[in-house]
Design a binder for these strands. Sequence first.
DNA 1: ATTTGGTCTGACCATTTGGTCAACACTGTT
DNA 2: AACAGTGTTGACCAAATGGTCAGACCAAAT
Lengths: 197, 197
Amino acid sequence: MEPTDTEKSILKAATLVFERDGFLGARMQVIADEAGISKASLHYYFRTKEKLFDRIFDDYTASIVPLLSTWEDGTDDWQAKVRHFVKGLMKLFSESSLLFMAQELHRDPENLEPRMAKRRQGPNPFITYYEGLRAKGLVRDTDPRTLLVAMQSICAYPSMNPKMLAGSLRMNSKEYNAFITSYADDAADLLVRMMQK
Amino acid sequence: MEPTDTEKSILKAATLVFERDGFLGARMQVIADEAGISKASLHYYFRTKEKLFDRIFDDYTASIVPLLSTWEDGTDDWQAKVRHFVKGLMKLFSESSLLFMAQELHRDPENLEPRMAKRRQGPNPFITYYEGLRAKGLVRDTDPRTLLVAMQSICAYPSMNPKMLAGSLRMNSKEYNAFITSYADDAADLLVRMMQK
DNA sequence: ATTTGGTCTGACCATTTGGTCAACACTGTT
DNA sequence: AACAGTGTTGACCAAATGGTCAGACCAAAT
């Protein structure tokens, strides 16, 4: 049962409004307007605001999964993998709002944490991969958990709190966005540097 | 005119509730209960929710300022400065919610960005400091803006999105908090490493 | 004792908002 | 034509919530 056009337009509208206004700030009427239907119709497709939100949230968590396979195929050298992963992650975060995710996860962990956990199985693939490299003596002998946190931080934070960072850099939002584009490459270099012997 | 006891208890309660629930999720009744007064009294001290919020927000922005002077006195060597700054920043973020700040800045930039900008004058002190070191050939010849973003990311993100990171590390929240304590030192090392020649 | 000014509150109001429902339209089937 | 199933909607409702207000309380000043 594939989604109808109306359903698709609802999901598109809801994603926009939820990401922009958050769950609490989002209005069912606004989502309906954005989707070009009545509020009653919106409730016909998704009985409650929660159910609609859960759907958006689940779609989001699914979008992160493919990137994790970076660490699992055995083709590239590790530096290329790091660069590929960093770029992919930053692209993902520039497209959909991570601030939204963190915000909602903080608001309703009871419901949302298990939803997110479903996607994860086995140990973290980056950590497994790094342990392998370390055993072969190819990378610096350091705690991969620290590296993982640093890597995710460097990729995520600039898109998550752009206003404050732009302020620190004394940039307006246009300048900041331009800077972040070039930052992706530099960030990858920094991370490679952290892992090199 | 220093604040009365009642006013102080309101500010304490409001900080707790706003940080936990966000501006939209916070209820004036809950703040009043937490402060041990009636809702009408709360409105007597702070006419509107907005005015109360602005006060909390301004107190927060003020708390970041002292740390910036790290880069301005000339005593320590640069590595000690980096370690001091990283620890101070992480302590600050562990005490008051940066997710809250980012969330509100995103919700109402019109009002909040100028409020934040008031605190900033002149160029960013870290960037000035690093330029000085670079001119003397003491550090790696790289863009200090990238380093600044990486530094803030590494310090801020772990406290901003703990749920998602804990998930990546396959930790529960107790384990995660323990890990983050040790992470502060490792993070400082990583940053020193990024700046070393 | 009375007044005055500040502090505090229960009761109340206006608005917003998620959600419901009866009625209507449209399409395909008998 | 009659019927059934699916979508669609305007009108409406109940609850939540920020904010108001008349009046109570109380200590200090007169």
